[in-house]
Nucleic acid binder design. Structure first.
Lengths: 158, 158
DNA sequence: ATAACTCGTTTGTACACAACAAACCATTTG
DNA sequence: CAAATGGTTTGTTGTGTACAAACGAGTTAT
């Protein structure tokens, strides 16, 4: 009776867990970020820019998964703070390549430093190794969204 | 050379990564959840309720980290769908203990099943073991927010 | 019993985030 | 030149959540 579907079992779903964890992290992050004049979205963008330097806005928008029009506003803010720079691409002068400036990198570093405390608070239950593992997994999961190399972002490495 | 600061290194901050991953997951999740009449918040709540049965609303609100007043609305919806039940506590009749109903459990199972596809899509870069590890880490990180056992939620196990 | 407090509830305000649409300029490509 | 593309601007909409104020019902302290 009540067969035990050993294989086809849906296993564990982490969507809800991620959602929950992200929200908690985010709420705390906001409070330490505001003194720095940043909001979560800015941090995500800056982080992305450090890891994928010189992206064009188009690829940034797919990378960050936010609408182009919204991205413009975001970048406007960051640029007006002097944290990033837009330069016209040499090859195609319609394009803007976005660059993290020196002050931008510093501000990001400050933010991450401030964030350390928040993570300590949220991730108390995880020891150092576990946190590192988590970081790695998130990094892997986040970097390549799917093995879809047919699109415009061909040169990366696939 | 280029010393390897093994210990004091600020290590990696995962706040931005989590934030980003959560948003991508969430957007996709919404599309498979809407046919089921659920939204992400509902799923989080139902999941919590399955794992921490019979919580009072107060403890739920700290667990979910959402305001009490907002929790009421959320539970109202779930109750009107018949997915949860509120019962007055015998000990203290001001309290409501919240229960996942049978239909609620089923709906949750459906949702998680539907979510499998989304996770497959978002977490392509992770193999089975890695996903399980991720799940475990998230579970640990999420369950006990901090070893603060002085409060009202004393009976759990600390 | 009366007062003070607590749990849940309702209502309303405010803000952040983000999707989406429409129209625009500059540039490249056909 | 026309058509398509990258970025920009403006404005609308919806959603999630915090927060405050005030209430009823029930509890606890005095």
């Amino acid at each position: 009776m009540a067969s035990l579907p050993v294989v086809s079992q849906p296993a564990h779903r982490c969507a809800a867990l991620i959602d929950h964890l992200a929200r908690r992290m985010r709420m705390r992050a906001e409070t330490v970020l505001t003194p720095l004049g940043l909001r979560p979205r800015h941090l995500v963008a800056l982080t992305m820019l450090r890891d994928h330097a010189e992206s064009t806005q188009q690829s940034l928008s797919t990378l960050l998964q936010i609408d182009r029009t919204n991205l413009v506003g975001l970048l406007n803010e960051l640029e007006s703070w002097g944290l990033i720079e837009r330069r016209r691409s040499a090859e195609d002068r319609r394009r803007h390549t976005v660059h993290l400036t020196q002050p931008g990198a510093e501000r990001l570093a400050q933010a991450e430093f401030a964030l350390a405390a928040v993570e300590d608070e949220i991730l108390v239950s995880l020891d150092g190794d576990q946190r590192e593992t988590l970081y790695q997994l998130l990094q892997i999961a986040g970097n390549r969204q799917r093995p879809d190399c047919a699109g415009a972002m061909a040169e990366i490495d696939c």
